[in-house]
Amino acid sequence: MDAQSYHPVSPGVGTEENFLSLDDILLSHQRHPVRTECAFPRLGFLDRSSDSEDLPEGTKMELPLWLSKGLYERKRRVLSVELPKVYKEGWRTVFTADPNVVNLHKMGPYYYGLGSQMLHFDSPENPDIAQTLLQTFIGRFRRVMDSSQNAYNEDTSTLVERLDCLEKALFRSGQSGLNGFQSWEKGRASQLTASSLVINYRKRKMADVQA
């Protein structure tokens, strides 16, 4: 495939993935703990610690996100999902106090994406999780963009090592805008172009209008 013909697709936001996005494909393979609430005939191979042909009720194991979403049913509880620790109350308290102190890459690296996907599963904690995701993003957004705008022609590896996937995309977008402006200011570019985030937003709005 011609490398020039590939254009990165942004990950989905919310409880549904965008399967044209490489980030979402990787996200869907993130493993998390579950517990079976009924027996699953001939699915014993899912439990690596058992040689049984069937998966008995009460089995605790880890499944990739895409599989647990496929097995999960709201009307008939066949699978219960345990929250990853970063979304539990203890960590939510840390994020509320100061979201900038947390190394999201170490905790994730898909903190926002996986947290949004966790809302697919019914839980009384879902409103608190959603609120923490939003407030964490708001609390870290300014620092991410300030860093991207103040690192011209510098090694940015240390600046992005604590960011999750979504924040790294924002950082790259900010860097791209800064580099474009610097080139235009020095007469190396004939015109300024819109940010890729703005272009993608316009495309989504046009698609919504046409639908």
Rank of each mutant, 00 (worst) to 15 (best):
residue 102 V to D: 00
residue 88 K to F: 00
residue 47 D to C: 13
residue 81 V to Y: 06
residue 58 G to K: 08
residue 92 R to A: 05
residue 95 F to D: 00
residue 51 D to M: 01
residue 103 N to T: 06
residue 45 F to Y: 14
residue 100 N to S: 15
residue 53 E to Y: 13
residue 69 K to M: 15
residue 107 M to H: 11
residue 44 G to P: 09
residue 84 P to V: 12
residue 65 L to G: 08
residue 102 V to R: 08
residue 82 E to T: 10
residue 87 Y to C: 01
residue 97 A to T: 04
residue 105 H to K: 15
residue 90 G to H: 00
residue 46 L to I: 00
residue 77 R to Y: 05
residue 86 V to N: 03
residue 95 F to A: 00
residue 64 P to L: 07
residue 96 T to E: 09
residue 101 V to A: 01
residue 62 E to T: 12
residue 75 K to L: 12
residue 47 D to I: 07
residue 58 G to T: 02
residue 100 N to V: 05
residue 99 P to C: 03
residue 64 P to G: 11
residue 106 K to Y: 09
residue 48 R to M: 10
residue 107 M to K: 12
residue 64 P to A: 11
residue 46 L to Y: 06
residue 65 L to C: 10
residue 67 L to S: 04
residue 106 K to A: 15
residue 82 E to Y: 12
residue 97 A to H: 12
residue 77 R to T: 15
residue 51 D to A: 12
residue 82 E to P: 00
residue 80 S to C: 10
residue 77 R to G: 07
residue 49 S to W: 05
residue 63 L to T: 06
residue 51 D to H: 14
residue 97 A to L: 04
residue 61 M to H: 09
residue 61 M to T: 14
residue 106 K to T: 07
residue 83 L to Y: 07
residue 107 M to Q: 10
residue 100 N to D: 07
residue 108 G to N: 04
residue 106 K to I: 03
residue 109 P to E: 12
residue 69 K to A: 09
residue 80 S to I: 10
residue 58 G to R: 06
residue 77 R to S: 14
residue 106 K to H: 11
residue 73 E to V: 05
residue 93 T to N: 08
residue 48 R to T: 13
residue 63 L to G: 07
residue 55 L to Q: 05
residue 58 G to Q: 05
residue 80 S to Q: 15
residue 56 P to G: 11
residue 81 V to L: 03
residue 57 E to D: 15
residue 80 S to P: 12
residue 49 S to Y: 08
residue 94 V to P: 00
residue 100 N to G: 02
residue 106 K to S: 13
residue 104 L to C: 02
